[in-house]
Design a protein around this nucleic acid. Sequence first.
DNA 1: ACCTTTCTGCTTACGTCGTAAGCTTACTTC
DNA 2: GAAGTAAGCTTACGACGTAAGCAGAAAGGT
Lengths: 218, 218
Amino acid sequence: MPSSRAPLSTRRVLQAALTLADSGGADSLTMRHLGRELGVEAMSLYRHVANKDAVLDGIVDMVVDEIDLPHEDLDWKSAMRHRGEAAYRVMTRHPWAPQLLMSRTNTGPAMLRYIDFTLGVLRGAGFSWKLADYAWNTMDSFVYGYTLRRLTFPIPAADYAQTAAAHQHLLAGGEHPHMAELTRQVAEGNHPGDPDITFGLNLILDGLERLRDTEPAA
Amino acid sequence: MPSSRAPLSTRRVLQAALTLADSGGADSLTMRHLGRELGVEAMSLYRHVANKDAVLDGIVDMVVDEIDLPHEDLDWKSAMRHRGEAAYRVMTRHPWAPQLLMSRTNTGPAMLRYIDFTLGVLRGAGFSWKLADYAWNTMDSFVYGYTLRRLTFPIPAADYAQTAAAHQHLLAGGEHPHMAELTRQVAEGNHPGDPDITFGLNLILDGLERLRDTEPAA
DNA sequence: ACCTTTCTGCTTACGTCGTAAGCTTACTTC
DNA sequence: GAAGTAAGCTTACGACGTAAGCAGAAAGGT
């Protein structure tokens, strides 16, 4: 009895690749492993995708497509904040993604849609073309940077105080007095230790609003 | 006549690794290639570095160490702006670096020094511990994000207008009306196309200043 | 002087990766 | 059924990081 297997397709390959990356990280996403997951030899995948890069481009765009766009009728600041937070949430669900997103030029359809929407929101709010362009670029730089740092950082936010307490002695040498004191503050619970993404988003959005009001669209 | 070769050392290996990465990108930095560059077999390197990860950690910290710290007597905003711009410049000299910096947990001595200095500047300017911590985290998220985006982006800033003009037809389908119009604006020279890093830095610094003045250090 | 330890670099080898080239099997279309 | 095409398989190549063990030279003790 020959095993009757669902036929391969680009879609199915990318879907499996996404699942594989989610479960085992970027390192576990190899052509051989991906093939195994689909009950197929590695080389068979090449009938449906050009090469591994195409797989990476594909799953990155699938992730971008998960970022949901806020309702058109939200005020621009809420919309933009929502957008940034949504991007962060999605990346957190797919921790391997931001690294990849930032490392390849790839601008898939989902990304184009996402940018176009953002420009629309800003233009609707009275931003000049130039300022709108600057605005989304600045926002995105921050969002990606923040997300990458968060994902790379080894300590879960909930454990900051505890970890700070445990590591205070490492900074006792006096070479890094400010870090030592900051660590003490965190250990004693005087401050939570890492800003939520909303902190930076609001900072940037408030600044953009002021710029818009200073130099309005021509 | 046996070739009399300078003896290996951790320092020499890391130095060569840095040079190799600079000249050929991260991909060209392999143990075999690195050995060849030093006139030595790949396995010989393992006498001086634990493994490839140690090499990567090492050269990343060397790059961080290149970021020069502004003078202590600069006002805090200039100091912070200077710091961000310096980081950007250094990363641009070593385009392979930010990717690596963000992907590994590694906090080498140069990084510790850099953070401690920044905290000192902010505390000296009257920021609370909490706000100072938020401040440098937000700044750095932006700086790294901005730098990564810039390095990944395929078009040199000088060619924006020309490239925009050449690609306008791709957006003619009407699916992305705002991007199409933005591209037109860039093509016609109505706006330069991408913000300098100073734009975002000032945005964030001005915002931080306002926050400091609203909720001063206890 | 000789022996012995240690240090440095070399050789060989294993299991992994992406993928080129060519083969085989199965399904369509007449 | 014959012919043509598509889908998956086999084998192989040249990378990669690095484990294990070897060879020769330098250094220290007697």
